[in-house]
Simulated scan of single mutants.
Amino acid sequence: MVTEPMPTAADMGRVAVMMGGASAERAISLASGQTCLDALVALGVDAEAFDPLPRPLADLTAFDRAFIALHGPGGEDGTMQGALESLDIPYTGSGVLGSALGMDKLRSKQIWQALGLPTPAYRVVTSADSSAAVAQALGFPVFVKPLREGSSLGTTPVDHEDDLAAAVAAARQYGEAALVERCIVGTEYTVAVLGDEILPPIRIDVAEPFYDFEAKYRSEATRMTIPCGLSAERESALQGLARDAFAAIDARGWGRVDVMADERGDFWLLEVNTIPGMTDHSLVPAAAAAHGLDMATLVWRILLTSWRHGEAT
């Protein structure tokens, strides 16, 4: 069997590290992108920051490939992936379909349900008038989320029906409808995917009411526990569920699957992040470090997802 030589930094050509953009996660994307850019430059890759907010996409034709560090709509939802494909520029991570489904919490859950994968019960709400129906169907507590947004933006935990309308209104600032999801009381885990590998799961312990924007990017009280404290058998089951959930929505390359374990220990899928954060508070770098991969190696492995058989994807 002949094994193809691994590409070198020079083989990658000129790389656009796409960061910033116009979504509500712009600031986090800039931080993630800068981390990745610094790592690539240190590895000898000819990499350059590319912010699609001020620059026309036509400028990308000067690059050989794109490292996507954009978060949220317009960068993580298949839009940019489709644009890059139309320009015949290889890029990191999931393709158009996997990116679109990963951003769409409703479609992800529908696919998982169809395949028999566990995910919390939910309702889609387009107005405050649905409060009584939601209360009857799901009970409380619940989480109210935008259908297509990341970093927990617009997400609110709700314990009482009287607070539901305000939470729905907050979520609908990011789109027409809100996803109201039964709250799983228990322990939160996240599982990173890197190529064909499932990295060690992380248990997330937060001081805030839930793992919100503050806890993800600013709080020093958030704890990422690795090993996650599960038995070897349970950890393997969690990794297998994450693998199945990731593959079910056609995600590929790299990403992260968020999971809750209830008080009985049963796992429930929350969502897939196809371009997770890469800041110093981020989960994928922490999982990679526990797996023996430093930041430079992690970023290089992500860049390799744009490469197949010595050519572009």
Rank of each mutant, 00 (worst) to 15 (best):
C228W: 00
V96T: 01
I202N: 02
E263R: 15
E25W: 04
A286L: 12
P146Y: 14
G21R: 07
G98L: 01
G98S: 06
D250Y: 00
I302H: 04
S231T: 15
S306I: 03
K105C: 11
F267R: 06
M19L: 06
A66H: 03
S108C: 13
G33F: 00
T222E: 06
D262M: 11
A207L: 04
P52H: 09
I249D: 03
P73R: 08
G75N: 01
T8N: 02
A312C: 14
D104P: 03
Y189I: 13
A247P: 00
T190F: 03
G72S: 01
D46S: 15
A170C: 03
F213C: 15
V124T: 14
G13D: 10
G253A: 08
P146I: 13
F210A: 03
G33R: 00
E208Y: 10
I204R: 06
A69G: 13
A296H: 05
G116C: 07
G95K: 07
A245D: 04
S29C: 14
E149S: 12
I204P: 05
E48C: 04
V168Q: 05
S236H: 14
I89H: 03
G20F: 02
A24C: 04
A177H: 10
Y91D: 00
A192E: 06
Q173V: 07
A290N: 02
E188H: 02
A232Y: 09
R223G: 14
R218C: 02
A290S: 13
W112N: 08
V96I: 08
G78C: 01
A289F: 04
G44F: 15
P7R: 01
G150D: 11
G175N: 07
H291I: 02
L298V: 09
T61D: 15
L43M: 03
H281M: 12
A207H: 15
A237D: 01
R107H: 13
V158D: 05
L283S: 09
A232Q: 14
A22N: 05
L269W: 04
D77G: 11
L147G: 13
A171R: 07
Y189V: 08
D212A: 08
P200I: 07
N273F: 04
M295P: 01
A166E: 15
A167M: 06
G72D: 07
R252Q: 11
V185L: 15
S127F: 07
S152A: 12
D196V: 00
V206A: 05
E25Y: 00
M1D: 15
S32D: 11
N273W: 03
A121T: 11
H281L: 02
G21P: 03
S152V: 10
I111G: 10
P146G: 08
D280S: 14
D104M: 05
G253K: 09
R182W: 08
L230N: 07
E76H: 00
G78N: 00
T35W: 00
D262F: 12
A165F: 14
M260E: 08
S108K: 10
G195P: 09
P141G: 15
R234H: 11
T279S: 05
A166Q: 12
L106H: 12
L238D: 04
W300D: 05
D258H: 12
V45C: 09
L70S: 02
L43F: 04
W112L: 06
L101A: 08
L194V: 15
D88R: 15
P285V: 08
A83E: 10
A165L: 09
C36W: 01
I184C: 11
L40F: 05
F143V: 11
M295F: 11
T297N: 10
D250F: 07
T126V: 10
V299G: 09
P120I: 10
